[in-house]
Amino acid sequence: MLQAKCRVLANSLICGNFFKLVLQNKSIAAQAKPGQFINIRVDKGQDLLLRRPLSIYLAKDDKLEIIYKVVGRGTDKLAQVKEQEKLDVIGPLGNGYTLTAGKALLVGGGTGIASLVFLAAALKTKFNSVPTVLIGAKSKEDLLCFTALEKIGCAVKAATADGSVGFHGLVTELFREIVAIFSTHPSMVYACGPRPMLRELVRLCRHFRIPCEISLEEHLGCGVGACLGCVVKGAKNEYLRVCKEGPVFKASEVIL
């Protein structure tokens, strides 16, 4: 974990309301693991006080890439940042995914897919095996990272709510169909996406007895575990910090 002023190499619209931010920082990139996030100060003034936590899409050499959606004032401010400007970044933060050998299935919804691309690449490097990836989106225009995942060599399947591409329905419904059909279940499921998607996915994984890791999103205060603002209910009825014990949890550790 370190704090650095990172040069913005690119910050551009990729599709729908989604942006890709490319930052330059060798030390953070070298430390970053799939599932970890960086905390970016988006307002140099004193209006929006809190940093915006964004999970890492790619970390290579001196480059850190982030995919984000403009959803509010903070990300709107971030979208206005120009190339060559510098952003104050703290990272990498939190615990990432546990890399395990075997037949992995990755399930992402919305921008949640970003951290899974980083994971897919890491699984390939470490175990020389490419996971299958299911991507959920509202429609074709919002479908993220499809090509990037194919380039890694993953078998990629899409689910869109409006049926404009791929499976017509929720990504969790697609997951259910796929897992039910195959006689051999995946050895591990990794997921990142909206809370309702994760809730349903965790339920299905429990049903099929597949171990599962999920990456949670929450409003963060400090991002380093000090303020206790970002908690999630743990299985022992305690509150766990999404920024510190998470953002990636074993599905059995938390109550969604």
């Binding site: 409003h219 205060g221 303020c227 603002g229 970002c230 908690v231």
Partner: peptide, 12 residues
């Protein structure tokens, strides 16, 4: 319980 934080203009 959540929520525990809410960002306001110039405040938290």
């Amino acid at each position: 319980p959540q929520p525990r934080l809410w960002e306001t203009q110039g405040g938290l």
